[in-house]
Design a protein around this nucleic acid. Structure first.
Lengths: 204, 204
DNA sequence: GTCTATATGGAGATAGAC
DNA sequence: GTCTATCTCCATATAGAC
């Protein structure tokens, strides 16, 4: 079956999103013009407006798609019957595995919040806080069960998430450490930060 | 002594920086125009160019001033003769105390790296890595001395810094927790993450 | 040092032919 | 659905009067 000349397997709307992502991650939303996006996609500016009503909606789609995929990714993981310590370990491994190959999405979802109009901002903030709540409730459960020992659930949640979010700022594919080693180290440091003590393993 | 009408105690260049800071923090460098800055300062656009050769140099000054103040602030602290654990405690307290009242500078210095032209980017990166090295060398000293127990110095450095940097994203002046309580919690979690064990205090 | 006025270019968005 | 052409506005930066 011959392909129509000039057609791409994916739909144009998705190609627009795919091309916008690295541009916005690199230059910032304000610095990227509709002309640049059109050029990267290989269409003229006017064509973009057949797929998105305006520039803002491209950004909104990038951010919602990312946040929804993040939440859906976590919910695919089976955590029934796991202890809080096992759940936080799953979470740390999931977060690192999911975000490392998506550094541009992660960057945009954090940096470009300020470029959103108020109602869009509110919507994305809602998705973000759902993600925070995953961690908060694991920590709360662990504290209630006496498995964790933290002075303040909220501070502990923010500290754990902050250290994880930072991974994306320094991880390099070609770096010294494999993804799974990094996961191991972060699991251990998270356990320690939460006051979860087990002598399972002495060489860490 | 009467003040000249329309004059401000500070020099105009500094007023330009002071007004640019919140604008860029809120809207982003690309989204802030020279007209907006001029409006906030209370002069006409052309006047800005008597103090800065172009827009980029305003950003460069904001970022270098902040990074230099950060490094200078740390070096004012007397750490001679302190153990690695005491030094990391000083660092955690310093970082939180210094950055909380400067959330806009912190935000810009991280977010607007990509808005810098290559040579400026390199210069700011140099200042940033000096700051990272402070933490890295404390952790290395602590590991060498057997006071800390970390699997990987670099990962530990990035995790500690990541969790600290995150404080600025959630701290609110009017929040539930005082600055000194937050410092206490982070000191404790950092000690734990670094494997520094002391039973000085059981109620944390 | 600040002003007014302007040069020059690029932005987002739309209309209408194909 | 994509194109060309264009509207309107605002960007950075400069020139020259005061």
């Amino acid at each position: 079956m011959a392909r129509t000349i000039g057609a791409d397997g994916r739909k144009t709307a998705q190609r627009i999103l795919d091309q916008s992502l690295p541009l916005i991650a690199k230059l910032g939303y304000s610095a990227v013009s509709m002309r640049m996006i059109a050029g990267a996609v290989g269409v003229n500016v006017g064509a973009l407006y057949n797929h998105f009503p305006n520039k803002q909606q491209i950004l909104v789609r990038l951010m919602t798609d990312h946040m929804n995929a993040l939440l859906a990714g976590w919910h695919e993981i089976e955590t029934d019957g796991l202890s809080p310590a096992q759940r936080i370990e799953q979470f740390v491994r999931f977060h690192i595995a999911f975000n490392i190959p998506r550094s541009e999405d992660v960057f945009i979802s954090f940096m470009e919040l300020r470029s959103l109009e108020p109602e869009n901002h509110k919507m994305i903030e809602g998705l973000r806080s759902q993600y925070e709540n995953i961690v908060a409730s694991i920590i709360r459960d662990g504290s209630d069960a006496g498995q964790f020992n933290v002075a303040d659930t909220h501070v502990a949640t923010m500290s754990v998430l902050g250290s994880l979010v930072g991974v994306n700022t320094w991880y390099r594919e070609t770096g010294r450490l494999s993804k799974s080693k990094i996961q191991d180290y972060y699991v251990e440091m998270t356990f320690r930060a939460l006051g979860y003590s087990t002598e399972r393993d002495a060489n860490v």
